[in-house]
């Protein structure tokens, strides 16, 4: 390998590396997050959501948490519809 070729290759790789490391990732970065617990109360009446009353609407005032019908998934089952 001649010196010229070596320099050309090194410069190409340097540019490629620069571009690869500074390029914005599709979908953005992945922030490092710890495990956490959260809850969503009814924004209409403030009641909590109870599992046995279903997940789609508030058991007290009927507020719709989601406008879809749940189907069987990994952890959610169709029985979880209110």
């Amino acid at each position: 390998m001649t010196d010229d070729n070596k320099k050309r290759t090194a410069s190409f790789l340097e540019k490629l590396r620069q571009k690869a490391t500074t390029q914005q990732h599709y979908g953005g970065g992945v922030p490092e997050e710890e495990a956490k617990m959260d809850i969503r109360d009814c924004p209409n009446c403030g009641a909590g959501r109870a599992y046995h009353k279903g997940l789609t609407s508030c058991a007290y005032c009927g507020f719709a948490f989601m406008n879809i019908t749940l189907t069987d998934g990994i952890h959610i089952r169709k029985e979880n519809n209110s």
């Binding site: 997050e33 495990a35 617990m37 959260d38 809850i39 969503r40 909590g48 959501r49 599992y51």
Partner: peptide
Amino acid sequence: FFIDTYIPCPFCQSQNTFSPSTA
């Protein structure tokens, strides 16, 4: 769990959402 999951509270039965860590 490896994805967000509903966990019912054993006392008040409220539906809590557990979000696992990135790792």
